[in-house]
Design a protein around this nucleic acid. Structure first.
Length: 827
RNA sequence: GCGAAAGUGGCGGAAUUGGCAAACGCGCUGGACUUAGGAUCCAGUGAGGUUAAACUCUUAGGGGUUCGAGUCCCCUCUUUCGCACCA
């Protein structure tokens, strides 16, 4: 007989909904806790990954409620973007319709899993009441000088017909469709995330983030310290600033390397249309595959520009080369090349017979340009460097920079790998950028009163080679809000990562029609106490959100520095060791499991199979194990509920208890203690469930509970009553039902945590292990308060210990309290 | 190449501060029961060894520290992830 999971789950889901126990109050006297899980795209189908992600969040939510906190666990949908547009195309419909249908379908499935979500706070990014405030945020960023427009070469996905941010290019392919990314010269909108680069490097204000994610962001931001030095174009006043992390090698510069995109090069090209070789080379490099060009394996190529520049430190005249290995958008876009001490410059100089100059010597002065087969890139003793000769190169760096600065040739500086965030997308299904282009006034922001700029509905969604918004003249053509002249709307929409950069704040005040959210509500709920999501957002969403949050802080909308205090990057659900995917055909439908074994079984399996941050390997047999476990709990309590109720009602009678029950008491308190550690200190739910199973096994070992005396029955009932509480975060429906079976009227979330008594965490008698030189030679059952000397004596008397010590002399005896006696012996 | 994390039975995984390796679950073996079930209950289950013990070996491999190492240190290998001409 199976327990009636279906009816139980429906019953409690309805009770929770009616009693609104998961609808968080706006304000509360209780300490708040804000639990947030991944912001889903409403695919219409709940995947096993969703089930796993939200099972963790729901466990946290219910634990924090049991702890007595005021908990908010909201849910919403990241519903703009390519997938929604593609879905609509596929179903020959409009994304506005299909998105709402999918949202309704998903909400039902979330409820079917029994997640305690606050549906009063639901947001969807594609609804005007939400995206209105995204546009408002854009305007605020613009007003603060953090938005600009720039024409430059962009990552372009032909498949998606849109540009991509650097973070969204994976191995040269689009992060969405994985088709090749090309370069296209386009005018685009940017958010100046680099203004916050320094602060984004600082993780001191987060409480608990995985080291891995912080490292990935730090590497992505990629700060390097060095010097900016101005070289000068020969016979000219024109400066060519370079950035270097090795100012100690500056006397070794033998050429200057520029990319074809460099403005100086572009100027030479424009003034010299007949130089076919230079034009050809630049054209070839600019249009080369960006991935290939930026790969270390690509063969270095270049062409001599015919120009020279002057090294300000020693007046040396050096050749200027146009090359394929220098990037325009890093540092100053110009490199002082030191072939003797940089491998890239070395390779290039060898190929084109450019002279080299040795300026760093190793400690045994064995370096010789004629015999070097590679650059010497380490620190050493400076040589051929005028007044710096003989100095240690590492410590001389600062002095060289200082000397250059004194003479006005440069300065100490640093640079970042991070680029500004390109947010323009040439797609229909996104948040319109609230800008009007006026032939007289230029870029004009749409006035607040006219927000939101609504997406027109009458658009043919489909594969088009241009932005569909261009095809709606009545939307496109407007008069300038400033001067009234006929003007045109911006047709770019915002990257959906803009929408997801602030949604967690909107949850604090989701229905506000006057502002994005009331600052006092945001200040109450934020930061998010626990965020649960996938590692794939490490340098995208999680960095963008930190940037926008810091901006909102600077506006005074929020009053903390980090949006997500604790971050858990949860693992994937795999099958046969591989990520589940439709193409591999190894997916599992959560609904199938729910229908047969119940949502509780699925949730217990997902939480038990591995710790939350690790991948979960799907196992049909494992699901059966969880199902059997819940059935055993059900049978135990259901068939003994009368005596358990009786035992719970007896108070604490003073009677002798059997050794068997004393052991059960120890097991129960110990299991609850470990559950506390695992659930509240460590977030290791797999072992919390294991402890619950152990307690169940310990209770089942008591065969005839009806024969227990009053004191024993009280202990038995205590142990049984702990089970629903311990199960509640993972299997809330069956837990709530069993809790009620035991005569409780208050729901579990309001009934407090299961409690243990420290007094019962140790046994009266303890088994000591006796080791000789680390090998177990015997065991001793002794009273817990035994005197160490007596213990040593007893240990030495053990027959097996005696035998093992034969022919040895004892050097030392170590007693580890409560654990072991360790004897060090030697010949 | 650089950086990070990891490597434990047939499988998923436990092991708090260096203190009985393999908890818990799955699977498997044998048995009981019969309402024949995706049931339940009992016993067993790292490898070798033994009637049973004793004993030996075992946390990727090798070395070290220690009375004692999955855990700390050094070297090597493997896997996964991130970055990768960043001057």
């Amino acid at each position: 007989m199976e327990y009636p999971f279906g009816s139980i789950e429906r019953k409690w889901q309805q009770v929770w909904r009616e009693k609104r126990i998961f609808n968080a109050p706006q304000q509360s006297d209780k300490p708040k806790y804000y639990v947030l899980s991944m912001f889903p795209y409403p695919s219409g189908v709940l995947h096993i990954g969703h089930a796993s992600n939200y099972s963790i969040g729901d466990a946290v939510t219910r634990l924090k409620l049991m702890e007595g906190r005021s908990v908010m666990q909201p849910m919403g949908y990241d519903s703009f973007g390519m997938p929604a547009e593609n879905y609509a195309i596929l179903h020959n419909s409009h994304p506005r319709l299909t998105t709402e249908e999918n949202i309704a379908a998903m909400r039902k499935q979330f409820d079917g899993m029994g997640f305690g979500l606050d549906w009063d706070r639901e947001v969807s990014t594609c609804r005007p009441d939400y995206y209105r405030w995204g546009q408002y945020l854009f305007k605020k960023l613009y007003e603060k000088g953090l938005v600009y427009r720039k024409k430059s070469f962009q990552n372009w996905c032909e498949e998606c017909q849109t540009v991509l941010a650097n973070e969204q290019v994976e191995e040269g392919t689009c992060w969405r469709c994985h088709s090749a990314v090309e370069q296209k010269d386009l005018e685009q909108w940017y958010f100046k995330i680099t203004d916050y680069a320094e602060e984004l490097l600082d993780f001191s204000k987060v409480i608990d983030w995985p080291e891995r994610v912080m490292t990935m962001q730090k590497n992505w931001i990629g700060k390097s310290a060095g010097a900016k030095i101005d070289f000068t174009l020969q016979d000219s006043e024109t400066k060519i600033p370079i950035f270097t992390t090795r100012p100690d090698t500056i006397y070794g510069v033998t050429f200057m390397a520029l990319p074809p995109e460099h403005p100086l090069v572009q100027g030479w090209l424009a003034n010299d249309p007949d130089n076919a070789a230079m034009h050809d080379f630049c054209h070839k490099v600019i249009n080369a595959d960006k991935m290939l060009r930026s790969s270390a394996d690509t063969i270095k190529e270049g062409i001599f520009s015919g120009r020279y520049c002057i090294n300000p430190l020693n007046g040396a005249k050096v050749q200027i080369w146009i090359t394929n290995y220098v990037l325009m958008d890093y540092g100053t876009g110009a490199v002082m090349a030191v072939p003797a001490h940089d491998q890239r410059d070395f390779d290039f100089a060898k190929k084109y017979n450019i002279p080299m100059k040795l300026v760093i010597q190793n400690l045994d002065t064995s370096l010789n340009l004629n015999t070097m087969s590679e650059a010497y890139t380490e620190a050493g003793i400076m040589a051929n460097s005028a007044q710096f000769d003989g100095r240690d190169s590492e410590t001389a760096k600062a002095d060289i920079t200082a000397w250059a600065a004194e003479n006005g040739w440069g300065e100490q500086t640093h640079t970042y790998r991070l680029r500004d965030w390109g947010i323009s997308r040439q797609r229909y299904w996104g948040n319109p950028i609230p800008v009007i282009h006026c032939p007289k006034c230029g870029v004009v922001l749409v006035p607040d009163a006219d927000l939101p700029v609504q997406l027109p509905d009458n658009v043919q969604v489909g594969r088009t080679t241009s932005n569909p918004l261009l095809s709606v003249p009545e939307w496109l053509n407007v008069s300038c809000p400033k001067c009234g002249t006929a003007a045109r709307r911006e047709t770019d929409t915002m990257d959906t990562f803009v929408d997801s950069s602030w949604y967690y704040a909107r949850y604090a005040d989701p229905k506000n029609t006057d502002q994005p959210f009331a600052p006092e509500l945001a200040k109450h709920w934020l930061p998010v106490d626990q965020y649960i999501g996938g590692i794939e957002h490490a340098v995208m969403h999680l960095m963008y959100a930190r940037f926008i949050y810091k901006f909102m802080r600077d506006l005074g909308w929020v009053d903390s520095d980090e949006p997500f205090a604790r971050l858990l990057t949860q693992g994937m659900v795999t099958k046969d060791g591989a990520k589940m995917s439709k193409s591999k055909g190894n997916t599992v439908d959560p609904q199938y499991i729910i229908d047969r074994f119940g949502a509780d079984t699925l949730r217990v399996f997902l939480m038990f199979a591995s710790p939350p941050e690790k991948d979960v390997e799907w196992s049909d047999d494992g699901v059966m194990g969880s199902f059997r476990f819940l059935n055993r709990v059900w049978r135990l309590i259901d068939s003994h509920k009368d005596i358990i109720r009786k035992g719970l009602a007896t108070g604490n009678p003073q009677k002798e208890i059997s050794a068997e029950i004393a052991e059960l008491r120890y097991e129960a308190h110990h299991a609850i203690f470990r559950w506390h550690e695992d659930c509240l200190s460590r977030m290791q739910y797999n072992t919390a469930i294991a402890s619950t199973m152990e307690l169940l096994n310990a209770i089942i070992r008591i065969k005839m509970p009806q024969t227990l005396n009053a004191a024993e029955l009280a202990i038995y009932a205590f142990a049984c009553a702990a089970l629903p509480k311990m199960l509640y975060p993972f299997a809330p429906h069956i837990a709530e039902e069993l809790w009620q079976d035991l005569g409780n009227t208050i729901l579990l979330h309001d009934s407090g945590l299961p409690e243990y008594n420290k007094q019962y965490l140790c046994r009266d008698s303890i088994t000591y292990v006796v080791q000789i030189n680390g090998k177990i030679r015997g065991k001793l059952e002794v009273s817990a308060d035994i005197d160490p000397e007596a213990l040593k004596a007893q240990a030495l008397e053990l027959e097996n210990v005696q035998r093992s010590l034969d022919g040895f002399s004892i050097k030392k005896i170590i007693v580890v309290a409560g654990k072991m006696v360790s004897i060090a012996a030697g010949k």
